[in-house]
Each structure stands twice: as structure tokens, then as C-alpha cells.
């Protein structure tokens, strides 16, 4: 699923980041990269606030659509 579909309060693992290279690279520096676990702090109307690497990052709807995530399975790791 896309990042904006992830339920509020859940922790998800990033599967893939697509979109323009310029933006992808910027996201990578900020810690949004494949395999990273992030927590959805706030999500409504498509825009999302996530907790990544211990800080808060706000993302708009379009960029959220470029980030596909997988819900964290409790008590185990998910292999993708």
C-alpha cells in the first residue's frame, strides 16, 4: 500500500520509493529509504507526518503516493 493509506499510529516498513531522482535522493538523506521502519504519527487528507530516525517529518500527498510501505507484523519480521 501507499504511505497515505497506512493507518495512523501504525509502524510500517518502506518497500520502495519511486518518483523523480532528485526527490528520491533527498528523501534518502532524510532517512526515507527501502527497509526503514517508520511510524505514522498523523495522517489525514493524504498528507502525513511520520516519525523516522527519531524525528518528525511532514510529507504531502503526492510524495506519499511515491512511497510504498508494508505494515509491520508484530512479533516477527516480514520478508519481502
Amino acid at each position: 500500500m501507499q504511505l497515505f493509506q497506512a493507518p495512523e499510529g501504525s509502524t510500517v516498513t518502506i518497500l520502495n520509493v519511486s518518483g523523480e531522482e532528485h526527490n528520491r535522493r533527498h528523501l534518502e538523506c532524510l532517512g526515507i529509504s527501502k527497509g526503514e521502519k517508520i511510524q505514522i504519527v498523523d495522517s489525514h487528507g493524504g498528507a502525513v507526518i511520520v516519525k523516522v530516525k527519531g524525528y518528525r517529518l511532514a510529507l504531502d500527498k503526492d510524495i506519499c503516493a511515491c512511497i510504498s510501505v508494508h505494515p509491520e507484523i508484530k512479533g516477527g519480521t516480514c520478508n519481502v
Binding site: N23, H26, L30, Y55, R56, L57, A58, L59
Partner: peptide
């Protein structure tokens, strides 16, 4: 194309 909004929200 509108550049994305990516911004750190400080404490």
C-alpha cells in the same frame, strides 16, 4: 510540476 512538500517538524 509542483515540488513536493518535505519538511522536518522540530520539537
Amino acid at each position: 510540476e509542483l515540488p513536493p512538500f518535505i519538511m522536518e517538524l522540530p520539537n
